Computed example of a mutant assay.
Amino acid sequence: MTKNSYTRSLEILRIDSSSRYADSVSRHLTDHLVARMLREYPDANFTTRDLAADLPLPTEAFVDGSLYSLQNPNPTMQAAVQLSNEMVSELLTADIVVLGMPIYNWTVPSTFKAYVDHVSRLGETFAYVDGVSQGLLRARSVYILFTSGGTGIGSEKDFATPYATYLWQTLGIQHVEIIDASGLLFNAEEKTRNAKIQIDQLLLPVFA
Rank of each mutant, 00 (worst) to 15 (best):
D200W: 00
V108C: 07
D158N: 06
E124H: 08
G183C: 13
E86R: 09
Q134W: 01
L29K: 02
A44P: 12
L145K: 11
T170Q: 09
D54R: 13
L10F: 00
K3M: 03
W168M: 14
S24I: 06
Q71V: 05
A53I: 10
V25I: 14
L171D: 02
G131L: 07
G135T: 08
R138Q: 15
D50W: 05
N105R: 11
M77D: 04
S155Y: 03
E156G: 01
Y163W: 11
M87P: 01
S5L: 08
L137M: 02
A114S: 13
Y6M: 12
W168N: 11
A80Y: 06
V129M: 03
D23V: 10
G135M: 11
S26Q: 08
S182K: 00
S89H: 09
F46C: 06
V176W: 08
Y41N: 08
V129S: 06
Q78S: 10
T165P: 02
L184R: 08
E177S: 07
H28L: 04
Q169G: 04
V108N: 03
V108W: 00
S17Y: 07
I103W: 08
E177Q: 07
A22W: 04
G149F: 03
N105T: 12
D180L: 05
K196H: 02
F146H: 14
R140S: 14
K191A: 13
T151V: 14
P73K: 06
P58A: 15
N194S: 14
L67W: 08
N72C: 06
I15E: 00
L203M: 10
E60V: 12
D158G: 09
M37N: 02
S19L: 15
G150N: 14
S120N: 13
P102Q: 10
T147G: 11
Y68R: 14
N74T: 09
Y68H: 13
M101F: 07
I96T: 14
T111A: 15
K113C: 10
E60R: 09
Q201I: 07
S133M: 12
M77A: 07
W106N: 07
P58C: 08
F46Y: 13
T7I: 13
Y68L: 15
V108E: 07
Y115L: 12
A208W: 02
S110I: 10
I144K: 01
I103K: 02
T76M: 06
D54I: 04
L91R: 00
M1Q: 04
G149M: 05
K191W: 05
S120Y: 11
K3A: 10
S155A: 07
N105Y: 12
S26D: 03
H28P: 02
D180A: 05
L91C: 05
N105I: 12
I179Y: 01
D200C: 00
I197L: 15
L171N: 00
T30R: 01
I15V: 13
M101C: 14
S66E: 13
W106D: 03
Y128N: 06
Y21K: 06
P109S: 12
S26T: 03
Y143C: 02
D158H: 09
R8S: 13
G154R: 09
P56Y: 11
L10P: 05
G150R: 10
S89L: 07
I197A: 13
A79D: 13
S66A: 15
T7F: 03
P42E: 11
Y104S: 08
T151R: 10
D43L: 14
T93S: 14
A114G: 14
E190D: 13
D16Y: 02
L92G: 01
R36K: 15
H175V: 04
A164D: 02
L51W: 12
A195V: 11
P73V: 08
